[in-house]
Nucleic acid binder design. Sequence first.
DNA 1: CTTCATGCAAAAGATTTGCAAGTTC
DNA 2: GAACTTGCAAATCTTTTGCATGAAG
Lengths: 163, 163
Amino acid sequence: MRTPRNKACATAAMKQEALDAFRGFLHERSLRSTEVREAIVRAALDHGGHFRVDDLVDRARRTGMRISAATVYRALPLLVEAKIIEPTEVSGEQRSYEAIYGRKHHDHLICRSCKRVVEFELAAFAVLEQEIAARHGFILVDHFHELIGICGNCRAPDNAMRA
Amino acid sequence: MRTPRNKACATAAMKQEALDAFRGFLHERSLRSTEVREAIVRAALDHGGHFRVDDLVDRARRTGMRISAATVYRALPLLVEAKIIEPTEVSGEQRSYEAIYGRKHHDHLICRSCKRVVEFELAAFAVLEQEIAARHGFILVDHFHELIGICGNCRAPDNAMRA
DNA sequence: CTTCATGCAAAAGATTTGCAAGTTC
DNA sequence: GAACTTGCAAATCTTTTGCATGAAG
C-alpha cells in the first residue's frame, strides 16, 4: 500500500519500491539493470527538491563508483520515462529535475528573490485547462505552471525594517 | 491611441512606437541608441510567433549590416527589460522569445506532435493564482503557464483514417 | 556469446567574455 | 574626449556522440 506523499525525500521502503519499478521498466524494454543505473536512481531519490544534472553526477559518485557524466545523461530519459523523475521548468535557469516517484502532481511557486520553492496543487486549474484545450480541439497531455512571486521574508524581513 | 492586439506581426505604427519606447528606455539608463540595436528590435518585431536567438541574428543581418551573435546576446536582456520581447517557456527545446510590445498577455497551448502553438488567455487563472500566492505569503509577480496537448489534426487527420 | 552499457575523449551547440577598434553623446 | 558598443575570436558550459572495453542476460 502506497500513499502519495508530499515530502521531498523518499523513505527506505519507497526507495526500494521505486528501484523495483525501475527494474521492471528496464526489463519490459529489454534494457539492462545495472549498478550504475541504480546508483543514479538512488541519487535522484535521495536528492530532495530540485537538482541539476551535475548534482546528480556528484551524488551518484559519492557511492565511490566511477560514473561518467555521459552515463548520467544517457540514463536521464529512462528515469523520466519510468516516472522516477520529471524535468522542472524553472524559467531561465539551467535545466533541473525532481524526483516524483510516489508523489502527487504539483506545481511550483517560486520566490524571485531567494529562489525558495513552494509546491502547490489546485484541482480547479485542471478543469480550466481541460476546457481551454477542448475549445481548441486539443486533448490535454500535460501542463507546466509556474508562479513567480516575492515571498514574505524577502518582502519585509523583520531585520530589514529596523536595523 | 493604441489598442492591444493579438496578431503576431506589428503594424508600421506600432513598430515605430516600440522603437521610440526602446530609445526612451535606453536613454533613461544612459545607454546608447545605436543602429545595430534598432535593427535587432526591428527583427524581433517583424518576426511573428516564437523565435530563437539564431532566427533573430539571421533576420537582423538581412538588413545588410554586419551584426555579430554576441551583440544580439548582449542586447537580449535589454529588449526583455524594455518589454519588447519575452522569453517563452517551451519545454525542453532551445530557449525562445516572442515579441510582446503592445500585445496582451497570453499563455500557450502547444501540440506535442506538430508543435503548433495556440495562444490563449483566461482571466479565471489570474484569480486562482493570486489566491495561491497569497495563501503562501507571496506577492505574485509573474507566471508561466503552458499546456501540452495533441491537436485535432495530429490526432485524427482525415487522410490517416482511410488510405 | 550476443547485445547492451560504460568511461573517456572528442565533438557540438549555445552563450559569455576579453579586447582592440569604432560610435555615440 | 569619455564612455559605451561592437565584431571577432577565444573561452565556458552543457549535452551528445564515437569507440573500444566491460557487463548483463
